[in-house]
Design a protein around this nucleic acid. Sequence first.
DNA 1: CCCGACTCTGTTCACGTAAACATTCCTGGT
DNA 2: ACCAGGAATGTTTACGTGAACAGAGTCGGG
Lengths: 351, 351
Amino acid sequence: MSNQAKPSRRGVKGHPKSGPSIGDVARLAGVSAQTVSRVSTGADPVRPETKERVLDAMRELGYTPNHAARALRRGNFRSIGLIAHQVIRTGESKTIEAVIEAARREGYSVSLVDVETPSSSDVSDAVQQLNHQAIDGLIIIRAETATPTALALPPTLPVAVSDSRFIGHHPAIGADQAGGSRAAVQHLLDLGHKTVHHLAGPDDSGPADLRATAWRQTLEEAGRKVPAILRGSWSADSGYELGKLLAKRKDVTAVFAANDEMACGLIHALHQAGRAVPQDVSVVGFDDIDLAEHFWPPLTTVRQQFQQIGNELVELILRQLRQRAPLTDFHGTVAAPLIVRESTAAPRKRR
Amino acid sequence: MSNQAKPSRRGVKGHPKSGPSIGDVARLAGVSAQTVSRVSTGADPVRPETKERVLDAMRELGYTPNHAARALRRGNFRSIGLIAHQVIRTGESKTIEAVIEAARREGYSVSLVDVETPSSSDVSDAVQQLNHQAIDGLIIIRAETATPTALALPPTLPVAVSDSRFIGHHPAIGADQAGGSRAAVQHLLDLGHKTVHHLAGPDDSGPADLRATAWRQTLEEAGRKVPAILRGSWSADSGYELGKLLAKRKDVTAVFAANDEMACGLIHALHQAGRAVPQDVSVVGFDDIDLAEHFWPPLTTVRQQFQQIGNELVELILRQLRQRAPLTDFHGTVAAPLIVRESTAAPRKRR
DNA sequence: CCCGACTCTGTTCACGTAAACATTCCTGGT
DNA sequence: ACCAGGAATGTTTACGTGAACAGAGTCGGG
């Protein structure tokens, strides 16, 4: 009278909580577990009457399929990892939204990891956290200074990046940073400005670098003086602080800001100093966030088509998943058109 | 000579792709699978020399633990589902960021689903998509019109919401919408405005409703006329369109907008119509997004402490996970202080 | 009336992992 | 020298699912 066999009450063998299983449903419905599975997946045909019985049993027990067991059996998770830098900032969140939406259309969910700084160690930690296996693919947005080799990604994991640094190692898709920047600077020159100042992003940022380089080259090609670069941190606050400096200099008539937030802070500082935009100073931003159109004055800016980038990132992952092979040499570019609004104008005549 | 046993080459029994398993590592290292597991989890002690051998084998094979098998065995996923409405919009994304960060600190990742509309069916679909099982807990931000019963959530799944509608069904944490709104309206009245107009959010939104109600009550309690409500859609565009209407009416001297984006669009319309802010019209927003401080003029607004809300949402989930029981009666409130900047002033003397 | 084809359902098995239990080996106290 | 007790490792087993295969029943054509 020792080894008494209680009928059920799971958890005997140290297994943690768990709901009713496919077997429980099968027992109640009086069918085999496989038939329950068939109803649950909808793959194989089941007689309507049998199906109904199974569905009733499921409802009664409150059965929901165990995702882990499915994933184990099927060998995939229907989930994509997404590493992003500063979710809330700027239009990047639009890319995230597009990724999530595109993934959802394909039946994938998205596991989001937000790295505070785009440093290699942070991204590496993020990869670590995604556990190398809970995901079928990995999308990296703006890894900046992380080097691909440092990440120790599982060799078979499909990856897609929206970051210039990773080009060559992984398929990439990105906005035409250089083209957009050139258009912005050229637009200001065409209006008659002698030169254009640049409010750049942080120097460890790839996109910031691309924009700054395009700005410099455009000026040089036009034979203009290249003013000292100003380094912001992408935040409106940093734009505001640097703007206070710029506002004092009467020779500054045109500024190209590396994103819309900094442009906003800059305009704030200019307004505050009594310098009119665009009459005294023209300002161009970058990103075309939703609010840019409603800044005062409405901001001339370079539009990043985040939505399209997000869609294509997912497409890149899915393609690799389908063909079961990496896709190393792919590198797509999305146009970044200049949107002219009211923050730019010809310089005031003065002599 | 029929049943020849080829050494390995997996995939015989229709199982999809898969990397090296714990068994492969064990074979190569000359230990048992269990020992590999011990090294991999770090739970039980392993002799340093054995450990080294196992680690070497792991490296050689490029082994990464299979997350699905782990989840199946352990009964949890170390993942939290997050349903949000319009990721990119407003400060909500700050809450999302805080949730992700707080979850990460606890070793959880976040599966994000973005519902386009906060309708019941969309949220229900989102729940469906989260598959009822790939997650250990569920956080719902702004489910708006979804009714809890319609969601068919697995009964044992811990849930936490930041949405007034769900209060009573699930533990909730939310900003003090009413208090913040009252403070905003009262601030305008104290400045000497006869009444305050309201640019509300969509009528299917819980928070919009709370803010509108608090606005109305504050006016009524002060014995003021309650103007007709204006319905926006949260977007700056909608604020701009409605702002064009308001700008024509000279009797409008103070507007309380239900969020900062609409306030931005509103101010744009007012500027465009030649009405000065705050001299002709005072404007108060809601949320205190990062940019609000740099609008022109800097926006007086009600601050939502999104970060704190995000942290507490995760805490609510973890608490339920720890005590293995739901927590139905909890309802926390986070203060929403008024931040006075420069978009509000006493009305211009006219008579 | 029989046989083949088709539809539906059941049985067996493996996915990769970790808990529980079993075994081996070593250390030190007497 | 012997044994108790612990540390390190091995063996067995089950988690929940779905693919592969097998068997049972049905229908129609020759």
